[in-house]
Design a protein around this nucleic acid. Structure first.
Lengths: 210, 210
DNA sequence: TAGATTGTTAATCGATTAACAATC
DNA sequence: TAGATTGTTAATCGATTAACAATC
């Protein structure tokens, strides 16, 4: 295994390549050079070749890259085809929005459960799934293998639930709350701070006005 | 003006400082050294001092930083107190979730309009706001100054609407779609690619299994 | 084969970290 | 004043870009 420890910067660019290649596929383009892709994406061809070669030689000299092949390879690297199962913790507005997020179905992610702690929400049906009480999590996790949990609950409720999920064997946490998470166990965590993104935008807007 | 062109890496860290300082305020801590903050945040004290000094000397030698003062300064830099007005384009699940996102009210952002193109949604009330038809955007923008527009609509509808919004004088676009935006006019754009975040998580999960 | 474009090494650039003089 | 900690310069590290030999 040529595990050279790929930098986070490279990893974060992979989904973008994946998107652009998917787009090319839709357009019926079956072959592309790093140079043409670089023009479309607004990055350097050098960076594209460097990035890809962290994982292997996916191109052919003198020819370029086969779009469908490269698309699939990047999808594999990202684990898009691993059929990861997803549960949503929190059936509020955000949880519902994510439950209906089409990306999950378009790619290989499958939502298999939605949980909430409010009695008036438990029993409701969202996207063919009956909302369960969070207290049912342990039992649920004993019966089904959920790989990823989306944390769409208020900050103060997160640490407790997150710890339980890890205990029950969750592999990844997609955290939409402000809570900072860290565990002794090997768990993948990805934080989505929408407010950070908004404030970054806000900064850019403020800059325009100067 | 000491406009030294602050790097994007620094800008993206500011919201995180802002969050941590807000937390310290809540805890009643009124003074902190770069060293202690670095331990809490898991970054180097050097980086904190370097970052802050891109904007000015906010500390006191031998003493540290006054938490409330620094919090406010960073808020100012980020434009959090500029009272930016926000409109939401798209009253689907995501638009509704964002309409109810408490961060807006907690900080100085004010949602003043929600728009959709579906007749069955227009007229509905979300968060005290009546959903308007997107065709009413021009008139609306003629009467009120909306600073930021949230694009929570399908990709193919984005370019057209975005162009109009820019024409009507929008200053910032918070783009949740896959559409890639670019304009001749000076407009701030911040893209939120939730799917990129999910795939990054997916990659990390896949790594655990090796 | 000649032309094109990759894979990869080397050069550059920028960002992070370390060190320390300034100063509260 | 002495001690502490900043602001800032210098050193290091890593990431990006450029160049080119390998090869399809």
């Amino acid at each position: 295994m040529s595990e050279k420890k790929v930098s986070a910067a490279v990893i974060r660019r992979l989904p973008r390549y994946f998107r652009y290649l998917g787009e090319l596929l839709n357009q019926g383009i079956d072959r592309i050079s790093s140079n043409e892709l670089s023009e479309r994406m607004g990055v350097t061809a050098s960076q594209i070749r460097q990035d890809l070669n962290c994982f292997g030689g996916f191109g052919q000299q003198g020819f370029g890259y086969q779009v469908d092949f490269l698309y699939n390879e990047i999808g594999n690297i990202l684990g898009v085809y691993n059929g990861y199962t997803v549960i949503i913790i929190g059936a509020g507005n955000l949880g519902r929005a994510l439950a209906n997020y089409r990306f999950f179905n378009r790619e290989g992610y499958k939502i298999i459960g939605i949980f909430d702690n409010a009695q008036e929400v438990v029993g409701e049906t969202i996207k063919d799934l009956t909302v369960l009480h969070v207290d049912a999590l342990e039992q649920f996790m004993g019966q089904q293998q959920a790989d990823i949990a989306i944390l769409a609950i208020p900050r103060d409720t997160v640490p407790d639930i997150a710890e339980k999920l890890v205990k029950y064997g969750i592999k990844g946490l997609w955290n939409y709350s402000f809570a900072e998470l860290s565990f002794d166990e090997p768990v993948a965590v990805e934080n989505v701070h929408l407010s950070d993104s908004l404030m970054t935008l806000s900064y850019k807007v403020a800059q325009l006005e100067k």
